[in-house]
């Protein structure tokens, strides 16, 4: 079984750089790639009844949109390059969910782009990549 590398994508430039670094790594080691898109979601948020009713529909369309605009466009180029790719879209807390996805897919390495948020932003919301580095059980590469 070949190794798997999980790449966190969010459509940003940083995440694209993370992907190219991961591709290089994958080619060198003959690993497969798992492209992951996590939709930030919390089970403890508050909604109106109308929003609850439409939630299922919205969830489907969120997943669809992530697949269509972020993940699917990458697949063709990667496959032409001879890299095996899987994609996954999941709702949840971003860092936590990425770790879970890594574990489920047996990833031996995680790539993530640095978002370069301001210090203030990081202080309030924390940094996804920092949280990932802290909690991960496999090596994490943060690409600037």
């Amino acid at each position: 079984m070949s190794n798997k590398i999980l790449v966190a994508l969010d459509g940003s430039d940083g995440s694209k750089r993370a992907l190219s670094a991961a591709v290089a790594h994958a080619k060198l080691t003959g690993s497969d790639l798992v492209l992951a898109y996590v939709i930030d979601w919390s089970p403890y948020s508050f909604h109106t009844p109308q929003e609850l009713e439409e939630r299922h529909k919205r969830r489907e369309s969120e997943i669809q949109r992530a697949n269509d605009s972020i993940l699917t466009p990458e697949i063709a180029a990667l496959e032409a390059d001879g890299v095996n790719v899987e994609t996954v879209v999941h709702h949840g807390k971003i860092a936590e969910t990425l770790l879970d996805l890594g574990e489920q897919n047996g990833a031996t390495q995680i790539y993530i782009g640095r978002r370069g948020e301001s210090r203030m932003h990081t202080m309030i919301f924390g940094s996804v990549s920092a949280a990932l580095v802290q909690a991960s059980t496999v090596p994490v590469t943060v690409v600037p």
Partner: peptide
């Protein structure tokens, strides 16, 4: 089933 309506959300509403 993350991303669907959670028990907490239904209760809170």
């Amino acid at each position: 089933s993350h991303g669907e309506v959670s028990h907490f959300q239904a209760l809170a509403t």
